[in-house]
Write a protein that binds this DNA or RNA. Structure first.
Lengths: 151, 151
DNA sequence: CAAGATTGACATATCAATCTTC
DNA sequence: GAAGATTGATATGTCAATCTTG
């Protein structure tokens, strides 16, 4: 049996399972709170944050999809729904280019959503950890992210 | 402005974003590999693992939904799909009770799926971290999980 | 009635195929 | 032809009913 085929050690297995389960539950819980507090889905929130940080509150659709690491069709469907609710609008630039802009309504929805969302992130996550743990987790996350970029 | 309303510190914000993005990308990448390697979705895999660890390879649907922390209707829809593909079967016990059992086909699919999935978990995750980091992450995850149970 | 199971409607995600413009 | 955008089919997840049996 090659080394890579060996089962995980008890310790590795326990760590992986704990991480996986935590991540799964935390994501669900935050999404429920977000939806209940502000009527936005996780996906809505992600798009609005990205646009609100872009210059002029707008960005080319293609750039946005690369920045979020979303499939283009995922972004397209998401934007269609968000346009329908008036959170963003599509603008066509030169040629193929499509730009997406956050609307005033979208900004208002985001501004209303941020404080309760931040409260839940604190309450369920940051406040439970020591400053050291927060730094450790940031390091770990960046390490894994680097690996994902190059494989 | 109350303390809880303050924006996150640079450090908290960077840590939260890195964690969130990592978790999001890692989950997607692993799911793609799983699907490509063995034709199972994350949800399929989760259910099959849980059943394979239950005595007799079966468990009451209600217990399963508590164990996975899944909405009952989520589990129901998932089981309907999996029954259709012959991965599990439903058995009715006394009265209201419904049991779910892994089928031989389900076991075979799981056994085929585990090795490549384990390889990807190692390659994208465990192998990138030091033993200390793995322990730190396990601690952090358990802490967050505890908090989620009691709120 | 209440626990447990089911159903249907809708939102979200992925994939493969197509359309459009350079 | 290829980059970028769109479409439709299908799988998955959530919610709010409803059905069923103790």
């Amino acid at each position: 049996m090659k080394a890579a085929e060996r089962p995980l050690s008890e310790r590795e297995n326990a760590a992986w399972r704990a991480f996986y389960e935590m991540q799964e539950l935390l994501r669900g819980r935050l999404e429920q709170h977000l939806e209940a507090d502000s009527g936005l889905s996780n996906a809505d929130y992600t798009v609005l944050v990205a646009l609100s940080e872009a210059p002029q509150g707008q960005q080319r659709a293609y750039e946005l999809s690369r920045r979020l690491a979303w499939e283009k069709s995922r972004l397209h469907h998401q934007l269609t729904r968000m346009c329908g609710r008036g959170l963003v609008e599509r603008l066509n630039g030169d040629g193929r280019a499509i730009y997406v802009a956050i609307t005033p309504g979208g900004r208002a929805a985001l501004e209303a959503a941020v404080p309760p969302h931040r409260r839940h992130v604190r309450h369920l996550f940051l406040d439970r950890l020591t400053p050291e743990q927060i730094d450790q987790l940031a390091d770990i996350s960046r390490t894994i992210l680097d690996g994902l970029d190059t494989s």
